[in-house]
């Protein structure tokens, strides 16, 4: 693909957004970044990645964090900023990639090849997926989903002016439960191809 393409996938927990993102990267033949980005960052900084995981995709804790002369001591905020810088560096290099979460639809908004997508799912489908993937009971699955979505929403809304999941912040919002993972991926690939001018819009 000659033009730079950046697919930003935001997702509800259990919607299969992560799998869709991975499959999109395979279909389009471009890199895939999610939490694995921290491994590369830690490697470049020559530090233990375990230092970062605890603070990944979490918002700054109010009251117990402070900012002095522009220096925040919130590990959550600093890890987020490190990831944002890393994403911008990747985007500046001209690389095409799929990125899951990390406020990427806002951080990379100035790149013309960036396509922000939000994946949602039916409650029942999401619960079944979480039960299967995490091997937990229904009540545990519901609790995990609520906790993760609450954390993601807080993280996103802290860093971005547009609200998490608000369709106005994305080019396409799609319910993966309606078409299933495979067809959702197919539909998104078609959308991306038309959007990038690889297929005639008429």
């Amino acid at each position: 693909m000659s033009k730079q393409l950046i697919i930003s996938i935001s997702r509800e927990y259990g919607s299969g957004g992560h799998e869709i993102a991975k499959r999109l990267s395979e279909s389009l033949g471009i890199s895939f970044y999610d939490r694995n980005m921290l491994d590369e960052i830690a490697n470049e900084m020559n530090v233990d990645v375990a230092n970062f995981h605890k603070y990944d995709e979490k918002r700054k804790k109010p009251i117990i964090s402070r900012t002095v002369r522009g220096h925040s001591n919130s590990p959550e905020e600093i890890i987020a900023d490190i990831q944002f810088d890393y994403l911008k560096k990747k985007a500046d290099s001209g690389e095409s990639f799929v990125i899951v979460g990390r406020c990427s639809e806002y951080v990379l908004r100035e790149y013309s090849g960036m396509i922000p997508i939000f994946i949602i799912g039916d409650e029942a489908e999401k619960i079944n997926r979480v039960k299967a993937v995490r091997n937990v009971s229904e009540s545990e699955a519901i609790s995990i989903m609520k906790r993760h979505d609450k954390t993601r929403k807080a993280y996103h809304n802290y860093h971005c002016p547009n609200k998490w999941g608000d369709s106005r912040g994305y080019e396409i919002s799609i319910n993966s439960s309606k078409l299933g993972i495979d067809h959702t991926v197919d539909l998104l690939v078609d959308f991306i191809n038309i959007r990038m001018g690889n297929v005639d819009k008429t």
Partner: peptide, 17 residues
């Protein structure tokens, strides 16, 4: 404390409470 822990975290060494 804030600027010191901030500098450490930026270098990949976050310091929690």
């Amino acid at each position: 404390n804030v600027v010191g822990t901030s500098a450490a975290a930026k270098a990949g060494h976050p310091i929690g409470w």
